[in-house]
Nucleic acid binder design. Structure first.
Lengths: 200, 200
DNA sequence: GTTTATACATGATGGTCGTCATGTTAAAAT
DNA sequence: ATTTTAACATGACGACCATCATGTATAAAC
């Protein structure tokens, strides 16, 4: 049975969304085409009317979810509090695609890698607008470091099967980022980082 | 043909080592038992004389490689310089098992998760000995934050198919960690982080 | 030296999954 | 209203892979 044009467009969006959620939750490989189509309310055979291959779906789903990522608002502490929350940790399917999929995407080439790279660039640019710092160079550095710390902390918290450790990673990384932000101001005010007390 | 006792012990080590390298390079799922055995110089049928299943091999290989991780020496800047190097980025198979496998291990239960959790705990403990800070609480926080940042930066650098961005992530995260370490000293010297200049 | 136990090679098996061929039905086009 | 087109359901195909059964040759035990 043929369906309407709008239905087709909606089906495509539904497939992309279902794929993105399943991939974030279980990775690219263990999720099957049949499963994605079932989650989208269709049967597996119809898949190839929408995508030429599973690889193409991966590229499409990744580009889609990354392009829809909301612009961070507020200051870095606000953003970090939301990102490094237990709710986010426990919501892989609906959470940050970078934390969920970057490590797997390393082994892919072409479109998925490029899509993820674009996502990293954009996130760095956006974060540099909200991190503290006096020069653009400083802000970009802080954006890169903070983003790496948040993504890394989320992965470490998720992999830890000790709940106390998992929470500690989220909380302490947040405090550490906050402390770093304040110190950054302090150090620059003193006239340069290099004037800080020397360590061995 | 039966082989000597020592040969058996060596074969087991060879299998674990080959598995660990292949897993770090290509992930748990896409690596086949036959491939691991071939890399170990054996045929696939013999595998089940050593391990009851591929899952058991995953647990064994992960525990093995994590337990052999060298203790960080020198100060944090030294460690970060080695960790956040282009050589490490380009050597997944021989590099940090956390950066390569933590994200995949999230989806596993039981022994592999526990092994990875133990690895995270140990690394935090070890890093807290070399990070700057005046109290144990501060040092542990810095160890957690720095470890998260290093693991996250390595993943982001590896996934970036733009070489300039990839290098920038490694270099700037390193500078950022160094600046943070110095500031941390500065801030505490000033008598508490909370006395830093207030931001909005 | 003979016997026994076992590590491993070879090959088979069953299940899973990506992909595709075909048929059917309903939307578009005329 | 009729024709045409296209979306999707059903089912099949072929490849891949984890696991296991069997045979064999050699180390270990006696």
């Amino acid at each position: 049975m043929k369906v309407s044009r709008e239905q087709v467009a909606e089906n495509r969006r539904t497939i992309l969304k279902a794929a993105s959620r399943l991939f974030r939750e279980r990775g690219y490989e263990s999720v099957t085409v049949a499963e994605i189509m079932k989650a989208a309310g269709l049967t597996h055979g119809g898949f190839y009317g929408y995508f030429a291959s599973k690889d193409e779906l991966i590229a499409g789903a990744l580009a889609d979810v990354l392009s829809r990522r909301p612009d961070p608002t507020g200051d870095l502490a606000d953003f970090a509090a939301g990102y490094l929350s237990a709710a986010h940790r426990d919501n892989r399917a609906g959470g940050c695609p970078t934390a969920a999929l970057a490590a797997e995407t390393i082994r892919l080439a072409g479109e998925p890698r490029t899509a993820m790279t674009t996502g990293v660039k954009r996130q760095i640019t956006r974060l540099s607008r909200i991190v503290p710092g006096e020069t653009d160079v400083q802000k970009r550095r802080a954006a890169i470091g903070s983003w790496a710390a948040m993504v890394g902390a989320m992965i470490l918290a998720r992999v830890s099967d000790d709940p106390a450790l998992s929470s500690e990673i989220l909380e302490q990384t947040q405090s550490w980022l906050a402390a770093k932000a304040k110190d950054q101001g302090c150090a620059t005010r003193l006239g340069r980082v290099s004037r800080g007390p020397s360590r061995k």
